[in-house]
Amino acid sequence: MKKNMGWKELMHGDAVQAGTAKEFKTGDWRSEKPVFHPEKCINCLFCWVNCPDCAVLLDENKKVVGFDYNLCKGCGICAHECPVKEPKAITMEAERR
């Protein structure tokens, strides 16, 4: 999206093209982050389906490979939904900056 547009350049109403969230690093206020343990993963994709920010990354074979930390807000839904017995394939750890 072009920056600093004048009002005459805007789309009608308060509409913006879909998908602009990709352009913003909205993950920088996380207090916890998900950590992926591939050896435990059964690749059910529950985490991928449930992540509200599309931050679970898949490879070309649709296998979970980790997270996009530019987008992940650390909500913990992926870890909560992961069906593997404790310790799960996703654990939440304190974010250190």
Partner: peptide, 20 residues
Amino acid sequence: NPVTLGSLDLQDYYFEHKMP
């Protein structure tokens, strides 16, 4: 023509969105 309506609009664009 997928669009987002009602997104957060702070100091950078709120004012512009009032002009139309």
